[in-house]
C-alpha cells in the first residue's frame, strides 16, 4: 500500500473512532415502576447538566408511563383496551417496585420527595424536554400493548422507532444504561 492510501485508511479509522466516542448517554428504560423511572429521569437530566446528549429508549412496561391521562385513542382492539385498562395511565399513576403497599408506599415517597425538594416526575419530564433529552418509544411495545402515538404525552423530542435506532444511538454513546 502506498503512503497516500495509508493516510486515507487512517483518516477513515479516526473518523470511525470519533463517531464511536460521542459524549452521549443512551438508556433503555424498560421498567414501569415509579422509582425506576424516577432514577432514569434524574440520571438523564443530570447527564444533560454534565454536558452530554441524552437519548432514552422507552420500551415494554415503561411505555405506559408516557401516556397522557387526558388523551384518548380510538380504534383499539379488545386486547389493546384490556392492556390500556390494566396498565398505569401515565407517570402519576406508577407503582413502587418495592413497598408499594397498594399505593400507600408510592404516596409516601411522593410526600417525602416534596419535603426534600426532589423534583417530581412532571417537573423532571418538563426539564428534560427543555434541555433536549430525546425520548424514543419502542414501536413494537406500543403495538403489543395497543398504545397509539396520539395518547402519548406532549413532549418536544418524542419519536416512535425500532430497536435499530436504539442500537445506532447506543453504539455511538460513551455511556449505555438499562433501567
Amino acid at each position: 500500500m502506498d503512503f497516500e492510501n495509508q493516510i486515507l485508511e487512517l483518516q477513515k479509522k479516526v473518523g470511525k473512532l470519533e463517531k464511536g466516542t460521542k459524549d452521549q448517554l443512551s438508556m433503555v428504560v424498560f421498567s414501569g415502576d415509579l422509582d425506576k423511572i424516577l432514577a432514569a429521569m434524574i440520571i438523564a437530566t443530570g447527564a444533560v447538566a454534565y454536558d452530554m446528549q441524552v437519548k432514552l429508549f422507552f420500551t415494554f412496561w415503561a411505555t405506559a408511563s408516557l401516556r397522557d391521562p387526558k388523551k384518548k385513542a380510538s380504534g383499539k382492539s379488545f386486547m389493546g383496551k384490556m392492556f390500556g385498562m390494566m396498565l398505569p395511565k401515565g407517570k402519576n399513576k406508577l407503582k413502587l417496585s418495592k413497598m408499594n403497599m397498594a399505593g400507600m408506599g408510592a404516596a409516601m415517597i411522593k410526600g417525602l420527595m416534596k419535603k426534600k425538594n426532589v423534583a417530581s416526575l412532571d417537573e423532571l419530564f418538563k426539564v428534560a424536554g427543555e434541555l433536549g433529552v430525546v425520548i424514543n418509544i419502542c414501536e413494537m411495545s406500543m403495538d403489543l400493548m395497543g398504545f397509539k402515538k396520539e395518547e402519548m404525552i406532549d413532549y418536544p423530542n418524542l419519536n416512535v422507532c425500532g430497536v435499530a435506532t436504539f442500537l445506532a444511538d447506543a453504539s455511538e454513546s460513551k455511556v449505555q444504561l438499562f433501567i
Binding site: 434524574i42 437530566t45 443530570g46 444533560v48 447538566a49 425538594n117 426532589v118 426539564v127 434541555l131
Partner: peptide, 13 residues
C-alpha cells in the same frame, strides 16, 4: 438552595 440532585448542577449549567 432547597433543590435536590441534580437541581444545583442544572442551575449551574
Amino acid at each position: 438552595r432547597g433543590t435536590a440532585c441534580p437541581g444545583p448542577l442544572l442551575a449551574a449549567k
